[in-house]
Amino acid sequence: MSATDQQPAEHPLMGAVRQYGGDPVDLPFWEACAQGSFLLHQCGQCGRHYWPASRCIEHGDAAMSWVAASGRGEVYTYTVMHRAYTPDTRDKVPFVIAVVRLEEGPFYHSNIVDCPHDAVAVGMPLEVVMQPHPSGLTIPQFRPRGD
């Protein structure tokens, strides 16, 4: 590449993704979040779901694609953060970070919102709700599901 070659413009979400140690292969996920939908990465051979983007552990060379997911799951484990370790959570403590076991199988780390933190419990049914984040990304958060 010569010095005069133009660099392709970077994807508008890439800076935020990179800031959090992410990878360009996850951009379709974050684009969909901004449109209000929750995707997972799926193996074209066995249908197993993954997040973030991964090769299938059984079919490593199978085609993977981003597919719409239910956005439903349950609390698998969690912690109530009584200290802020990141700049944008200083005015939020105490707050909950849960590992959500999605209906399709993968784990997803998220905050639990619309719920007192002492009401959070392992096994609590959840549904996704999209929220803007200071990074510019739209991030999936989860709230109790009444069904």
Partner: peptide
């Protein structure tokens, strides 16, 4: 923040 290596969960305040 990115150098800590906690990845996307840092979006939710997970660090450490």
């Amino acid at each position: 923040i990115g150098s800590y290596g906690y990845g996307y969960p840092m979006l939710y305040g997970l660090l450490g």
